Structures are given as C-alpha cells and as structure tokens.
Simulated scan of single mutants.
Amino acid sequence: MSNSTTAQTLRLLQRENIELKEENERLQGEVLALREYLRGLQALQQDAQAITSAQNLELFLSKLLYTALKAMDAANGSLMLVDYDTDELVFAVVKGTIQSELRGYRIPKTTGVAGWVAIHAEPLLVGHPRSDDRFYSRIDETFGFDTTSLICAPLLGHDKVIGVIEVLNKFSQEAFNEVDLDLLTILAHIAAEVIERIEGGG
C-alpha cells in the first residue's frame, strides 16, 4: 500500500471516528433530555393529585406547558380550552414571545391546526405550516409572529374534546418529530384529566 493510500485511509478513519463521536454525543443528549422529561412528568403527576381549586389549576397548567416547551426545546406554546357556548377556542395559558397579546384571545373552533385537532380529536404534526391548508396565518400576521413548525394534541375529556395544547418553533429550528408528538399527547392527557376533575367538582 502506497503512502498516499495509507494517508487517505487514515483520514477516512479519522473522519468516521469524529462522526461517530458526534453521533454518540447527540444520543447522550437525547437520553439526558428524556430522563429530565420523565422526572418532570413524574412531578406533574404528583402535582395533579394535589389540585383542589380552579386557582391551583391555572398554575398547574402553566407548569405543564412549561414542561412541554422544555422537553421539546421550544420557545412558544399555548393551551386552549373549548368554549362550547360560543363554539370558540380560548387561549387560556400562553408562553413565549407574544404571550401577553394571546392570553384570552379567541378563534373559531374550526380554525387552524388547533381547530382541526379539536374537531378530529387527533394529534397533529405540521413541519411546514405555511404550505398546509389547515394553518391559520392570521395570528402570525396580526402579532408579527413567524410559525416555522408546530405540533398540537387534543385534551380528550370523558365525552368530548375540552381543549388542545400546541407547541411551536424549536430553538434549534429543526422540525418536530413523532417522539415530540407522543410526549405532548401524554401531557395533554394529564391536563384533560385534571381539568375534568376540577370542573366536575371532583
């Protein structure tokens, strides 16, 4: 084997070693993030048992949304509740750059990705919102926001959808994935159980 061939082989091996090291570091980071999420989930489940009033419920839902954002490395999110008297979705808990503007904001229950999730009672991942017909761009346009990717899961009550939880825009600017959607669906289930228990007087 010539010296040039040997040098080329060494460079290839070094490059492969670097790539393997980077992949290993990425996987370790994902494992650590998942462990942190599971600890947060356990704490939320414990907190859920202690909720006894509507005031405590609001604080709990805020903590739950924060847990979702942290687990998914995202900057913005909201928890919307269905107002069946007006057939609207109401932004009950909001975190992110336009949280003060969105809190209490209402949209028709049939509107946008959140509306689709509320109607179909299914979680949804949208990697390119602006090319998706279900995306409601008016909020972005009204408040100067830019939605690049989002996931949304329904809050399933005993016999109806009582709300949705939505997370937008990873810090890394990567799209959300199915693991993110599964984690959000678990949190939506916890939120729905607590809301129904408090509103039902249980």
Results as ranks from 00 to 15, higher is better:
A74K: 01
Q49N: 14
H120M: 13
F91T: 13
A71E: 00
Q28W: 08
A7M: 11
F91A: 15
L41C: 04
K109I: 10
Q45R: 13
R39A: 08
A153V: 02
N169F: 11
I139W: 08
L57I: 07
A121S: 13
C152I: 00
N56V: 04
W116V: 10
A153Q: 03
V194F: 11
L44C: 05
L10D: 12
I198P: 11
T86N: 09
R35P: 05
M72Q: 10
E19Y: 11
T110C: 01
G200F: 00
G157C: 02
I162G: 05
V161S: 00
Q49L: 15
L64F: 01
I139C: 09
L181K: 10
G200I: 07
S137D: 04
D85N: 01
L59M: 13
Q42M: 07
G96W: 00
F176I: 09
G96H: 02
V194H: 12
T5L: 14
M80L: 14
D87E: 15
G157T: 04
A175G: 08
A75V: 08
F135D: 01
V94G: 12
A153N: 03
S137L: 00
V164E: 03
S137Y: 00
N17R: 15
E141W: 03
E174H: 13
H128Y: 10
V164I: 03
I51D: 05
L79Y: 03
Y37E: 14
P123G: 04
R130M: 06
A75Q: 05
D146P: 01
A71K: 00
R130G: 01
D159Q: 13
H120C: 09
S2H: 05
P108K: 03
L89N: 07
M1C: 05
G202A: 11
S172L: 13
L187K: 01
L64E: 06
Q28S: 13
E88A: 06
L168E: 12
R11Y: 00
M72A: 06
D83S: 08
D159Y: 13
R15C: 04
L81G: 06
V113Y: 07
V179D: 00
M80D: 06
L150K: 05
N17Y: 12
H158T: 15
N177I: 09
G115H: 13
E166I: 09
E199N: 14
T5E: 15
R106E: 10
P108E: 07
T142Y: 02
Y84T: 00
L65W: 02
D47A: 14
G202W: 03
